[in-house]
Computed example of a mutant assay.
Amino acid sequence: MATRKPGRARIGEPTGVRALERGLRLLEELGSGEALSLSELARRAELTPSTTYRLLETLRRRHFVDWDELSGLWRIGLRAYQIGQAFCHPNSLSSLALEAMQRLVARINETVNLAVLDGAEAVYIQQVESRQMLRMFTQLGARVPLHCTGVGKVLLAWRSEEEVRQLLGPEPLVAFTPHTLTRVDAVLQELERVRRLGYAVDREEREIGVRCLAAPVRDATGRVVAALSLSAPAVRLPERRLAELAPVVLETTRDLSLRLGWQPETAPLPVDQSSPT
């Protein structure tokens, strides 16, 4: 059987689509804010240097990337930033949540994050930091696993068991600390507890010394579309304080869900429209 040559479009696949995929891959590599050389970008995107250069030049002409002539490095451009800002439109989830998050931080003085599901990971899309000297910080756009984070557990809890297993993938799950649940059945039991309580807790499962408490944000259909969490050093979040803060966080997510059109009399739904087995 003939081997497809590198750089050639697959049969039946428009060449423009292939080029678009490659260009987006380059933008993703530059999206972390790191300036990269042509050769490094080509290596990461698994492209030839000549193809990488042609794509970057197209992106540069449209101001999606910039090239520093002195260093020879490529970085994300102003146009990419401008388009990304559309996600912060006044009617977007992150913007609607910001005011509620600011009120919550003013009340509890701990860092608050908002995350959504993207593929098999949770992605942070909004953050309000506390005024504490020692405080938690998460870069917007950072991706975290689902099985060992408060936001991840919330984003999984109201989904079917079949979908949860698919999202978690094969066992054993990655153990980040001695407290991480590495068996899917153990995670499913934890998700049952999350549904019963209405919130999730990360007890140093992702990082030693850090605890989180997260609750669901629902849309007009009752579907969980985001998770709002507070995070703090474990010494500031003992079990007693977690129990005290849970109703405060739930009150915030309830108010935000109402703003998104959620109607308590018709929600919450079971497990994302199909009950767990």
Rank of each mutant, 00 (worst) to 15 (best):
Ala2Thr: 07
Arg4Val: 11
Lys5Ile: 14
Pro6Tyr: 07
Ala9Lys: 13
Pro14Asp: 13
Pro14Leu: 10
Pro14His: 07
Gly16Phe: 15
Gly16Ile: 10
Ala19Cys: 06
Leu20His: 13
Gly23Met: 05
Gly23Lys: 00
Arg25Leu: 09
Glu29Asn: 03
Leu30Ala: 00
Gly31Asn: 05
Gly33Leu: 06
Ala35Gln: 11
Ser37Leu: 04
Leu38Trp: 03
Ser39Gln: 15
Leu47Ile: 11
Leu47Asn: 01
Thr48Glu: 15
Pro49Lys: 09
Thr51Cys: 06
Thr52Tyr: 05
Thr52Gly: 04
Thr52Gln: 01
Glu57Asn: 11
Arg62Asn: 10
Arg62Pro: 00
Arg62Asp: 07
Phe64Lys: 00
Val65Ser: 00
Trp67Thr: 05
Leu70Trp: 03
Trp74Arg: 02
Arg75Asn: 07
Arg75Glu: 03
Ile76Ser: 00
Ala80Tyr: 02
Tyr81Met: 05
Gly84His: 05
Gln85Asn: 15
Phe87His: 10
Cys88Phe: 09
Cys88Val: 14
Asn91Asp: 15
Ser95Glu: 13
Leu98Gln: 15
Ala100His: 14
Asn109Ile: 02
Thr111Cys: 03
Leu114Gly: 03
Leu117Phe: 01
Glu121Gly: 07
Ala122Asn: 05
Tyr124Glu: 00
Ile125Pro: 03
Ile125Met: 07
Gln126Gly: 09
Gln126Met: 07
Gln126Trp: 09
Val128His: 01
Val128Lys: 01
Ser130Phe: 05
Gln132Ala: 14
Met136Leu: 13
Gln139Phe: 12
Leu146His: 01
Cys148Thr: 10
Thr149Leu: 06
Leu155Phe: 12
Ala157Ile: 03
Arg159Ala: 00
Glu162Asp: 12
Arg165Tyr: 02
Arg165Ala: 02
Gln166Gly: 10
Leu167Gln: 06
Glu171Ser: 08
Pro172Cys: 06
Thr177Trp: 14
Val184Met: 04
Ala186Trp: 03
Val187Tyr: 02
Glu192Phe: 07
Arg196Ala: 11
Asp202Asn: 13
Glu204Ile: 12
Glu205Gly: 05
Glu207Tyr: 10
Glu207Ala: 13
Ile208Gln: 12
Leu213Ser: 00
Ala214Arg: 02
Ala220His: 09
Gly222Arg: 01
Arg223Gln: 10
Ser229Ile: 03
Ser229Asp: 08
Ser229Cys: 13
Ala232Tyr: 01
Ala234Val: 04
Val235Trp: 08
Arg236Tyr: 08
Arg236Ala: 06
Leu237Val: 04
Arg241His: 09
Glu244Ala: 03
Ala246Leu: 02
Leu250Arg: 15
Leu256Met: 08
Leu256Trp: 03
Leu258Asp: 04
Leu258Val: 13
Leu258Met: 13
Arg259Ala: 14
Trp262Val: 07
Trp262Ala: 10
Thr266Asp: 12
Pro268Ala: 04
Pro268Tyr: 04
Val271Gln: 06
Ser274His: 14
Thr277Leu: 14
